[in-house]
Nucleic acid binder design. Structure first.
Length: 388
DNA sequence: TCTGGGGTCCTAGGACCC
DNA sequence: TCTGGGGTCCTAGGACCC
């Protein structure tokens, strides 16, 4: 049986959640910033009145407020958005057990055969939209197509509060004149390369020589051609299944002013190491590969990573590893604008160490986490962090 | 003084082993 | 005496997503 996938893409999700929580913000231009400080921050989401003024996600907040000075600025409250997304997921699971949370504001449902229960896919989609509006005071756009990528495209092409249904036979007509950059997975760089090859539309991409695409883009070239023909993944990765281990856990931070002092840089690295380690312990994970990256005033990144012999979830150990890696990035030939620490090569954290010293350290970390968990993060922290 | 922060996946080149 | 080629691991970095 041919698969049919429903993709739900919530409209201006972060901004809409804020408006639902505070009705005074309804119909107002709302800009949700990635953090509280308006300096060196970008727009995480904005309401449709702000979009109408030219504000887009990813734009610097300063630029957004210049375009739309009357906008209400709200710092992002991620736990609130995650909580709402999980409740939406639970609602969708009542419609189809084959449900996947694709990102914080996107969901995929395998609705193959569901038209027999709901009368039609259209009826099912309207019922979902109605329930979401009733329960959350939110809207979303729905796309229905034979695979996830095409369903997502359909949802995106009819925003906000839209519904678009494509059968397999509709796809060639839809894709023929569609600009390649509209496909999820083709960003600005690839678009530029394709345009240089005189490929502008999905129709042209679908007819391009596969060998040529593979020689230019590697395996990704094959994917490009398949996608342009409307082929894509049908398999839903069930959100009710235990989640796979994340591949990496990290934190990065853009400084309010650039720094040149090595000791200040080390203090910031220490803080990030503690934050990463806290997350690792919260997720019951430990990691072997440490990754340190620095960003200069020209927004260029330098990064170094190293695989160490053992895994860790200890901020102090992580910091020592970062200092070793930092040696490879010295001397700094320009100020540092931002920095990041991440850990990969993750495995589940094992039970208490067999070694007494390690065990004492683990007990100390566990006590720190309990105190911070009870009184708020960073109620207690290493003295070296006072410099940040 | 426009440009955050969380990720994933892929590729290329060098080192090393057999 | 000279030295191929395949496989794997490690690392750096690019591109993309929300």
């Amino acid at each position: 049986m041919n698969k049919q996938i429903l993709h739900l893409d919530m409209d201006a999700f972060f901004a809409s959640v804020e408006q639902a929580a505070n009705p005074k913000l309804k119909a107002q231009p709302v800009i949700v910033g990635s953090r509280a400080n308006k300096k060196r921050t970008v727009v995480a989401a904005c309401s449709y009145p702000a979009k109408a003024k030219g504000v887009t996600s990813g734009m610097s907040t300063q630029e957004a407020l210049r375009l739309c000075p009357q906008a209400v600025f709200i710092p992002a409250d991620c736990p609130k958005y995650i909580y709402t997304a999980q409740r939406i997921l639970a609602l969708l699971q009542e419609f189809s057990p084959q449900t996947e949370m694709a990102s914080i504001d996107e969901f995929n449902l395998d609705i193959t055969g569901c038209e027999r229960i709901f009368g039609s896919w259209e009826n099912m989609a309207y019922l979902i939209k109605q329930k979401i509006h009733q329960q959350f005071d939110l809207t979303g756009s729905i796309g229905i197509a034979p695979n996830k990528l095409m369903a997502k495209l359909a949802a995106k092409m009819n925003k906000p509060d839209g519904l678009l249904i494509w059968k397999k036979s509709d796809l060639p007509g839809v894709l023929e004149n569609l600009p390649v950059e509209k496909l999820c997975g083709i960003g600005p760089k690839i678009t530029l390369y394709l345009n240089q090859m005189s490929i502008f539309t999905c129709g042209q991409l679908s007819r391009a020589e596969e060998d040529l695409l593979v020689s230019r883009f590697g395996q990704y070239g094959r994917w490009l051609k398949q996608t342009a023909r409307g082929e894509g993944q049908e398999q839903i990765e069930l959100s009710s299944q235990p989640e796979a281990l994340p591949k990496s856990v990290g934190h990065s931070y853009t400084l309010e002013t650039n720094i040149t002092s090595l000791s200040m840089l080390q203090a910031w690295i220490r803080l990030l190491c503690e934050m990463v380690a806290l997350r690792l312990r919260g997720l019951l994970l430990q990691g072997q590969i440490t990754h340190l990256y620095l960003r200069g005033p020209n927004l260029n990144w330098w990064s170094r990573q190293k695989k160490f012999s053992g895994t860790t979830f200890d901020g102090q150990v992580l910091y020592r590893r970062c200092l070793l890696i930092l040696q490879g990035l010295l001397p700094l030939n320009c100020p540092v604008r931002a920095l990041g620490v991440s850990v990969s090569g993750l495995t589940n954290a094992c039970a208490l160490s067999l070694f007494v010293e390690d065990r004492k350290r683990q007990e100390l970390l566990s006590a720190l986490d309990r105190i911070n968990g009870r009184f708020g993060d960073w109620s207690i922290y290493p003295a070296s962090l006072k410099r940040c």
